[in-house]
């Protein structure tokens, strides 16, 4: 290919990497730490409250998950979660509220293409892979665990 530019692709890409402003990493890390930690603390407070009123630990954890997912969905629907995500980054993506956000966001957006092929089909556009790989890996380790138990 004849090129006007006197650089190989590799040279150009190295040059671009040098040019590109880097993410403000320290700021991102601090925000992710604070927001991520804060969401987890809220989760713990919810669990503690339910356990205080005599709900068994496992149920309390499940209720906490449901409530956090509700909060994530609610904040997404009032257009707030995307703003949190902008400054919190992974701090708001990694907690379960972020999972909820990644289910709700495409559902809201693809509503314009109808309730079945729009909302329904696209709801798990981002979160689908989490289920696919989470469940797949759990079945694999379940099988290995079963084998181990069989022979030991």
């Amino acid at each position: 290919m004849d090129k006007d530019i006197n650089m190989t692709d590799k040279e150009y890409s190295d040059y671009v990497d040098k040019k590109a402003t880097n993410s403000p990493m320290l700021k991102h890390i601090i925000m992710a730490f604070l927001v991520g930690g804060f969401i987890c603390v809220i989760g713990q407070l919810i669990t503690n409250t339910f356990m205080h009123f005599g709900v068994p630990k496992d149920s309390a954890t499940t209720i906490t998950t449901i409530i956090l997912i509700f909060i994530g969905a609610f904040l997404t629907s009032i257009n707030v979660y995307s703003k949190i995500g902008k400054f919190a980054g992974a701090g708001s993506t990694i907690p379960i509220t972020g999972f909820s956000n990644s289910v709700v966001a495409p559902a809201i957006e693809f509503k314009t293409e109808g309730y079945v092929l729009g909302l329904g089909a696209n709801m798990f556009k981002i979160a689908g892979p989490v289920l696919v790989y989470g469940i797949t890996s759990s079945v694999i380790i379940g099988f290995i665990y079963w084998l181990i138990k069989l022979f030991l």
Partner: peptide, 17 residues
């Protein structure tokens, strides 16, 4: 945004580039 990237309400950070 919806054709090329993520849904609008998805909370994520854009690369500075």
């Amino acid at each position: 945004e919806r054709q090329f990237r993520m849904p609008l309400e998805h909370g994520n950070q854009l690369s500075p580039t």
